[in-house]
Design a protein around this nucleic acid. Structure first.
Length: 740
DNA sequence: GGCGTAAGACTTTTT
DNA sequence: GTCTTACGCC
């Protein structure tokens, strides 16, 4: 039985899978079975005799890659480990580890995340004696990222750029790239750009990969940048077997260099392209689809198309108006409870918002109502300071040239070394043209100033020992445990003896576990691979999807996902579209697509909301409905004014129909809907339940009150303001408050 | 050099 | 409201 018979495909999908005449562009609107087509295509190619290793397929998340790999395996009944499927970033990293020597990189290079980039940029600016205020590191990095995404090296800018600031910027760009090279590090953008440069500079290498990958496939093509486009051109220019799937209406990463033009001009760039358009939507109810179509038609830059469905009309789309974001969250929680009574699982529900900051209120309220949730994205486990510290030790072991990691940990735990000590070592390193760690491992300690010798010799001994263990091919988890023991990081935390440090110890133990499990699951892989996996993981990759837990994430994060019930919250002007994009029609269009992405995540039920007032930086800021909502004809949804849901409000804001065209009445900030809800559940010792403002008594710090709560369940953290004025962050599970 | 407090920035989205 | 940085004191 052919794979084509094992998977249900409509005529257009089937045609797209079976076509093999050259470049293919599949316009796949939201929910039109894009993943299905891509999977079937790959399985079909393999069935026709292609080796899995001859396939290069780029997906948007590693999770999607894993799922697709196993589906292809199930369809073909063949092992497909050899297939190259993953994110552009991870596959480029793989190529660069193998071939980087052609452009001056060792296979052990380190990948810098945003944090590391920032540290390095600060150093670079300092060395060029450029004031942070005249060129903020973040800004410089943003512009440089733009250059890299377009594959424009600093050398090409040098003679064209005019004006003092831009010339300085090019100088910074050049120095930053040199610094990266010197310490054998690449940032995220380098992974893409350097692969393109590598292929340009080493045609023989390119040719090998052109021959190796006989078919190149790309998912979410609308979100590729120029570097990715050039890379594709390079790989496919010999055989022209390029298959891309995407939806221009879902292009939402323009701000990080993605070019919607890539998909709109694909036909022009790849001669002989055949275009397929998938318009039948299998995901959403008719009502939701009509609402989505109405939202997106306002955009001018788009390929003409209209999604349709043969599904039922479905439940009405609701747009709620609430008084403030607290009430919005309370009401969403009410609705979730109702839905769950009707048998909807938490995992089928998603709360989607534009900015990460909006998650706070929802977290607080869901937690208090004991509604389990998972927050996708935000600060991930691997971005926590204690985890990054531990990883810095490991990274140094893999790449001793990594000065950014060295600087992070050379005095952590404290060894009496500071800026002066750093300068002392750095000076020696400069004269030797080596990195800090290399220098430290090579020199006679007597070469250092006497007062730093003790501290540095500790660092020296730690790494000398660890390097030894590595040479003896000690298993990675053992090396990690040895490192923990040697460097004294754990002792430092144990000595601190606060609930916060207990939490950190917990996290580090968790890291040790993760490393052990990883080592078991990936025999033969090196520490370097673990570190890479960890830095290149997307937010969705670390998503711990649960049956009962309500999902919360940003609209960007939700791309490619679907949920039975979706709550689209905070639909106010200034939030979506973001105030910062008001001035640019192209950016406004991208914001509209972002809303479109949100709407089209919903299968059965969609509830939107906007609020009159929103807490921001501790102030209550007025807001009014998003211009996008106002442009959607009212026949597509039911409007409910719930802004008087709690307590008394001015009569002026009562029953009104055409509320979308009005701004909220300016009035004194209403008291947040606290009292009625907060008094609902009592603190009891058995359930260990906490609430904001609750008075507690700690055995060491004495009496105080809870001023903020974050995390959930095991991870719950409490910020407590004690009566002596000190504020402490405590892990809820360790807090052990005394009975009042 | 380390620690504590105070002022300031910050929130658009992420590999 | 939270996090980072700067500065002053020990």
């Amino acid at each position: 039985m052919s794979v084509i018979d094992k998977i249900v495909l409509n005529p257009v999908q089937r045609e797209a899978v079976l076509y093999d005449g050259g470049p293919q562009l599949v316009f796949a609107g939201a929910g039109t079975g894009k993943t299905r087509v891509l999977t079937a295509k790959i399985a079909w190619l393999i069935e026709k005799g292609l080796y899995p290793a001859e396939i290069f397929a780029a997906t948007f998340t590693n999770k999607a890659a894993r799922e697709m790999r196993s589906r292809v395996e199930a369809l073909t009944n063949l092992p497909v480990e050899g297939m190259w499927i993953g994110t552009f970033h991870s596959m480029c990293a793989r190529i660069l580890r193998r071939e980087g020597t052609h452009i001056g990189y060792l296979p052990s290079f380190t990948i810098y995340d945003t944090d590391d980039q920032q540290s390095l940029m600060k150093k670079v600016l300092k060395s060029l004696q450029i004031d942070d205020r005249s060129m903020p590191p973040r800004q410089a990095l943003g512009k440089i990222s733009g250059f890299k995404n377009a594959c424009t090296p600093p050398e090409r800018l040098e003679n064209t750029v005019r004006g003092f600031y831009d010339q300085e910027l090019v100088r910074v760009y050049k120095a930053y790239q040199k610094a990266l090279r010197d310490q054998q590090a690449m940032d995220f953008d380098d992974l893409l750009a350097n692969t393109v440069y590598l292929f340009e500079q080493a045609p023989a290498v390119l040719e090998r990969y052109q021959k190796a990958f006989r078919h190149v496939l790309v998912d979410e093509y609308q979100d590729t940048n120029t570097a990715q486009f050039l890379f594709l051109k390079q790989l496919s220019q010999k055989h022209g077997h390029v298959f891309v799937v995407g939806d221009d209406d879902q292009s939402i990463y323009g701000w990080r260099g993605a070019k919607i033009e890539n998909i709109l001009s694909f036909e022009r760039e790849f001669a002989g392209t055949r275009v397929f358009t998938l318009e039948q939507n299998y995901r959403s109810s008719k009502v939701i689809l009509d609402f989505a179509n109405a939202a997106i038609t306002e955009n001018l830059t788009r390929a003409p198309k209209k999604l349709w469905t043969s599904r039922d009309t479905g439940d009405e789309v609701v747009v709620n108006r609430f008084r403030d974001d607290r009430q919005e969250a309370e009401s969403v929680a009410d609705r979730i409870e109702e839905l769950q009574k009707k048998g909807v699982k938490g995992g089928d529900i998603a709360i989607l918002f534009r900015t990460n900051a909006q998650s706070r209120v929802f977290e607080e309220i869901l937690r208090r109502r004991k509604l389990p949730y998972v927050l996708v994205g935000g600060i991930s486990f691997y971005e926590r300071a204690e985890i990054k510290d531990c990883l810095a030790y490991l990274r140094l072991l893999v790449n001793p040239k990594d000065n950014v990691s060295f600087e992070r940990i050379f005095n952590l735990p404290s060894r009496g070394l500071g800026e002066k000590a750093y300068e002392n070592l750095a000076e020696l390193a400069r004269t030797r043209s080596e990195s800090l760690l290399e220098t430290l491992l090579a020199i006679d300690p007597a070469a250092l100033a006497p007062r730093y010798q003790q501290g540095f010799s500790e660092v020296h001994d730690i790494f000398a020992l660890l390097v030894d263990l590595e040479k003896q091919h000690e298993p990675v988890p053992q090396i990690f445990n040895e490192m923990l023991k040697l460097c004294g990081y754990m002792d430092m935390l144990t000595d601190e003896d606060t609930e916060e440090s207990a939490g950190r110890i917990e996290n580090i133990n968790e890291l040790a576990n993760a490393l052990t499990i990883w080592a078991e699951e990936h025999p033969g892989k090196a520490l370097r691979d673990f570190l890479e996996e960890v830095t290149l993981a997307t937010d969705v990759d670390t998503w711990d999807q649960k049956d009962e837990a309500v999902n919360m994430m940003t609209l960007h994060c939700a791309k490619g996902l679907e949920f039975r019930c979706v709550f689209l919250v905070g639909l106010e002007d200034g939030i979506i579209p973001s105030r910062q994009n008001f001035d640019d029609e192209k950016k406004i269009e991208e914001e509209r697509r972002l809303l479109y992405v949100g709407i089209t995540r919903a299968m059965q039920r969609l509830e939107c909301s906007h609020v009159d007032y929103r807490w921001r930086f501790g102030d209550l800021i007025p807001g009014y409905p998003s211009r996008f909502l106002q442009s959607i004809p009212q026949e597509h949804y039911t409007f409910r004014d719930r802004s008087n849901y709690f307590g008394e409000i001015p009569a002026a804001a009562g029953e009104r129909k055409m509320v979308h065209s009005e701004r909220p009445v300016r009035r004194k900030a209403p008291a947040p809907a606290r009292t009625s809800v907060y008094d609902r559940d009592d603190f009891s010792q058995e359930t260990v339940e906490f609430r904001m403002g609750q008075h507690v008594k700690h055995k060491i710090y004495g009496a105080g009150k809870i001023v903020s709560i974050s995390g959930f369940g095991e991870d719950m953290k409490l910020s407590v303001l004690f009566n002596d004025g000190t504020r402490k962050k405590l892990m809820a599970k360790f807090a052990n408050f005394e009975a009042q």
